[in-house]
Each structure stands twice: as C-alpha cells, then as structure tokens.
Design a protein around this nucleic acid. Structure first.
Length: 588
DNA sequence: GCCGTTTTCGGCCCGACTGTTTTCAGTCG
C-alpha cells in the first residue's frame, strides 16, 4: 500500500468522524496524520517492514502507528470498516460539493435517505432539499449547480496554467487607482505545482469599489459571494478566485495569512499564543490578561505588528520565511534555530541547461537556434540531448547519426566563445536496464542523461531493478524525469524511489528536476529526500523550443520548495568546475 | 487522537459570508 493510499484512508476516517459529530480535535488528528503520511518521502510500508517506530513521525501517536501498520499489513483498517457500517462512505462525495459540509451531508442522509450524488441530484430536482430545516431554495439551487460543475471539471490547475489565467486579472485589478497593493497569495505564491483556487489580496482604503471592480472583470463566469471585505468568483476557465480587501496597516499580516499554508499558519499562531500574542489576518495583538473573551469576538489588544511580513515574523521571534518553505515541514523550527537555508536557489544561479532537443529528434528548432537562445539567457553551457534510436517515433539517433550531429555541432560552435555546447544525449533505458547506445560511443559524450520512455507499467520490483541497473552503468551522469509522471494526466511509474535514490548516492549519479510544467519530476518532497541523501540535482527544462527555456523558473521554484541551495545543484557550477564534477564520476 | 521550556491532563487558531435564522449555525479558507 502506497503512502497516498494510506493518507486517503486516514483522511476518510477523519471526514466520517466529522459527519458523526466526533470531537473536532480527534478529527484533526486524522487529518494531520494523513498529511504527514502523504508527504513522507519514504514508503511507510518499508518503514513498517524494517520495524521502525512510526511514532517518531509528527502527528503519529500510538493509535495512528497501529492503524498504519494494520493498513500496510492487511490493506484494511477496522476503524474505517466500523465507521462505514454506520455511515455510507459515499457521503464523502456529497461533502466535496461547495456549501455542503458534515452537518448538511448528515442531514441529507438522515432525513432524505440521500447517500450518493445521483440521489442528491434527484432529490434536489423535485424540491425535497429546500424543505429541510437549515436548507432553502438557494442552497438547493447551489447544490444542483455544483453537481453540474463537477461533471465539467474537477481537477486542480497546473501552476503554469494558473499563471496564464491570473496575469490579466491581476493587471485588471492593478488598473483600479484605489488599489494600492495587489498580491496573489495562497498556494500560487508558495509556487505549489498545482493550485485548486487563487487567493488575491488587495490593499485599499475603500473596499466596496474594489469588490465591484473585481466582480466586473469580463472573464468572470459567476459571482459566488461578495461582501464588505471579500468576494469569490469563478472565472470562465473554471478557476475559483477569492479576493480580500484589507487596510494598509494589515498588509503583512494579511499576506502571511492568505499565503498559508494552513498548517504553517496554525503553527505560527500556536507559537504566538505562547508569547502572549494573537495573530489574525489583521495583525498581531497582545492578549489582554484576564480579558474574558467572548467566543468568536475579535481580540482587541494593542496591535504590535501587521504592516509587513517581516514584522509579523519578528513579532514571534523569527526571521522572514520564504513563501515556498511555508508548509510546516520544519521551516518554523529551522527559523527558530537559525538554520534556514542561507540562500535558496534562484534562476540567476543557473549557469547552464542540461536537457534540450533539436530538430535532430523531436525538437522544433536547430542546434544553432537553441544555442543562440541559451547564450541569450547568459548560460555558460548547455547540453544537446536528443533522443536515442529506440524512440523511432521521434527519430531517435543511432551512433551514426550522432556522429553526423557532432559534425554539425562543430560547425555551429567553430570560432564561437562564451558558451560551451556539450555533447550529450537523452538515452533510453531499455527493458533490462541496459542503455540504448554502445559503450564506446557513450564514452565520447560529455554528459550522459538516461531516461525511461517505454514500458512504464512494469511490475514495481522489475522497474526498480531496471533503473538501478542503469544507474550502475559507469558512464551515466543524470537520471532524467525519474518518475515519468505527467501532472493530471499520468501517474508516476511504480518503483522504489528510495532504493533508486540510495543507488544514485552510491554511484554518484545526479537526479533531474525536469522543469516542464506538466512534469516537475521529481516533485518537491522527493527532491528534498534526494538532498538529504546527498544526491546531486540538476534542473533542466527539457526544452523542445527556445521559448521553453523559460520553464527554468518552474524548476527552480520547485527546487526552492525542496530547500535547495546552489551547492545542491550541479548546473549552478561554473563550466570548469561542472566538467570536473562530472568527470570525477566517470573515473569512479 | 496528539502532545509537552505553564507535561501525563487539558489543552488544541481565527474571522467573514451566506442563508437561514429572529440571534445564529454551517461552511470556508
């Protein structure tokens, strides 16, 4: 059983307990445990197999450890089985509709006998839902609309898609004179690989006209909510956007709050309470002694911070934490200990791009055009990595065509200075782990990148053996797009990433962080694991056109989320040191 | 159900909007 599956079961238990009306903190414990499991880079089944103590993981106590063990060993969880005997698991589908939470789902089930989306739709169609206490005409209409929307789409947007949709909206908001700051916060600002919705923060004295300007944006499909300080719309692209308007003195507090993540904020608040402060999106206030607070009432002590994020962090005794790190993956503890990364990697640190294609295989531009584009970006080197012969569909190169390509490369680079064009290739890993090019030709390449493009669905053990065999090859420098996933389209291959990373560490092979926005492979937590194991990373665009060299920023953003600094990334090295680094590997 | 520089019990983050309410529950982020 994979971590994502274990996490899904734990999260299901939490949600069912919510419907049951259980202790909210018990529910949260399941949610926390689920998140820990989902983000853990090592398969928990491996930890269970070696008898490791799962209680060492955050949010995993005696009970959760037992549940995880039960899931790994039996594939079932008795706690879930018991719950689903009482509550139909299909109620979880109802709760994914906006506006339907645990209470409403329970009511629909108990009073109307509704268990599935289909039954809910049927009940709403004949007007049975609006008669329920706490429901009404609008709720019923919203439910029907949400079910219709669900059919159309329900996927998270890739970050690059969100970039394209959001840029004109931000321009629209900035065109309003009364908006002093317009910032996109949320997972978008943390540069998560996909976003479910967008949070935009506007600083203005008069909220009402800003809200009106926002809801009047031409690409708005529907206005879901609009109040005095916030509004929610769905854009024509299907993306939900939440807008919040706040006063200048709360800018930092609001940016912090709406950037999240939720888990990061919760931990910060907890920390602030211990220091006698209470944090909200309006600022940090000192909690008055003995001031018995009414629940739900805003705390009204003296404001001690709020205008900038740095001020907010300083109020709780911390340095500013970069948005990409705000996931509650140890960044608050590291900030407190002064051990945050000193210099998270930036695009400016990148000195070369180590995967791209030309018209020799499936690229769209010539070698000269790609080289010019790399030089224009200020790179010191780039690697031309056309495909090998097994990929006949894209005219993969055999040794003979490769030799011809080298002649063209020599012509292109003759007399040229300032950028080094590396002889390279993206060589297919064959079924048995051997490589799609003869050793004596491999030897003559500057950089050997190996990737899997075929037989993605081999059994896990066989796939792992295949990859390990390829990494042990003495001439291999880089493992390209290691998991083969395509975001929202194709799952990662089944293989033991931990074993592959340990093998890469042992044999001095680097792993690629492929910066294609639909790959971003390895993902953030996996790259972080590579860093922990001392495996070097290369960030490459896999560009098939000069404009795709721009994708480097997505790779770098992902690397930042994995806490990478330039020292962890081979293609931040100056040319000579880069060549030394990969030569050393060849000799070893 | 987890957790511990106010420990093994008693805590566990904060506010806005909607739709349904005659004073607020439910949902969301």
């Amino acid at each position: 059983m994979e971590n994502t599956e274990i996490a899904a079961v734990l999260s299901q238990v939490g949600t069912l307990l919510e419907i049951q009306g259980a202790n909210p903190f018990r529910i949260r414990a399941y949610e926390n445990a689920s998140r820990t499991v989902a983000e853990h880079p090592v398969p928990l089944r491996a930890l269970v197999a070696e008898g490791a103590d799962l209680k060492d993981l955050p949010g995993i106590g005696k009970d959760m450890a037992g549940y995880i063990k039960e899931l790994v060993e039996t594939g079932r969880l008795h706690v879930l089985d018991e719950l689903t005997r009482e509550i139909p698991a299909t109620l979880l589908d109802l709760m994914r509709l906006p506006g339907v939470g645990p209470k409403k789902a329970r009511k629909l089930w108990k009073e109307l006998g509704v268990e599935t989306l289909e039954q809910l739709e049927a009940a709403a169609r004949v007007g049975r839902v609006e008669d329920l206490e706490g429901f009404g005409q609008k709720t019923q209409a919203k439910i029907l609309e949400a079910i219709a929307n669900r059919r159309q789409q329900g996927v998270r947007f890739r970050l690059s898609e969100a970039d394209q949709i959001i840029a004109p909206l931000v321009a629209h908001l900035r065109s309003y004179a009364g908006a002093r700051h317009v910032e996109v916060a949320g997972s978008y600002r943390r540069r998560l690989e996909t976003v479910g919705d967008i949070d935009i923060l506007v600083i203005a004295d008069e909220p009402d006209p800003v809200i009106a300007h926002f809801t009047a944006y031409p690409r708005v499909r529907s206005v879901e909510a609009a109040g005095g300080t916030r509004a929610t719309v769905i854009l024509e692209a299907g993306l939900q956007v939440d807008l919040r308007v706040l006063p200048e003195e709360s800018y930092g507090a609001a940016l912090l709050y709406f950037t999240g993540s939720k888990a990061h904020n919760v931990k910060l608040r907890k920390r602030s309470l211990a220091l006698g402060l209470s944090i909200s999106e309006y600022g940090a206030v000192r909690v008055e002694e003995g001031g018995a607070e009414e629940p739900g009432e805003r705390r009204t002590g003296p404001l001690v911070a709020g205008a900038t994020e740095a001020e907010m962090y300083a109020a709780v005794g911390l340095p500013l934490i970069p948005p990409e790190l705000r996931e509650d993956r140890g960044e608050i503890e590291a900030a407190a200990a002064g051990s945050l990364p000193r210099h998270l990697i930036t695009v400016a640190d990148i000195r070369g791009d180590l995967q791209m294609h030309s018209t020799w295989s499936d690229g769209k531009l010539s070698i000269a055009q790609m080289l010019d584009a790399c030089a224009a970006r200020g790179y010191e080197y780039c690697a031309m990595t056309d495909h090998s012969k097994t990929l006949a569909m894209v005219r993969g190169l055999d040794a003979q065509r490769l030799a011809e390509q080298w002649r063209e490369m020599d012509e292109v680079t003759a007399g040229r200075t300032g950028i080094r064009l590396l002889r390279s290739m993206e060589i297919d890993i064959l079924r048995d782990g051997s490589l799609d090019l003869e050793d004596e030709v491999l030897e003559r390449l500057d950089l050997v990148v190996v990737s899997i493009h075929t037989l993605l669905d081999l059994p896990e053990a066989q796939q792992t053996r295949r990859m390990v065999a390829a990494l042990r090859h003495p001439h291999v420098h880089v493992l390209g797009h290691p998991t083969g996933r395509l975001i929202n389209r194709r799952n990662p291959m089944a293989f033991d990433l931990e074993e592959v990373l340990q093998c890469a560490a042992e044999y001095g092979v680097a792993v690629e962080l492929n910066a294609q926005p639909d790959r971003l492979d390895l993902r953030d937590t996996q790259i972080a694991r590579a860093r922990e194991l001392g495996v070097k990373v290369v960030i490459s665009t896999d560009a098939h056109h000069a404009r795709e060299l721009e994708f480097m920023r997505y790779g770098v953003e992902q690397a930042r989320r994995a806490w990478l600094e330039p020292e962890h990334v081979l293609n931040t090295l100056p040319l000579e040191r880069f060549l030394e680094a990969i030569k050393k590997k060849g000799a070893g």
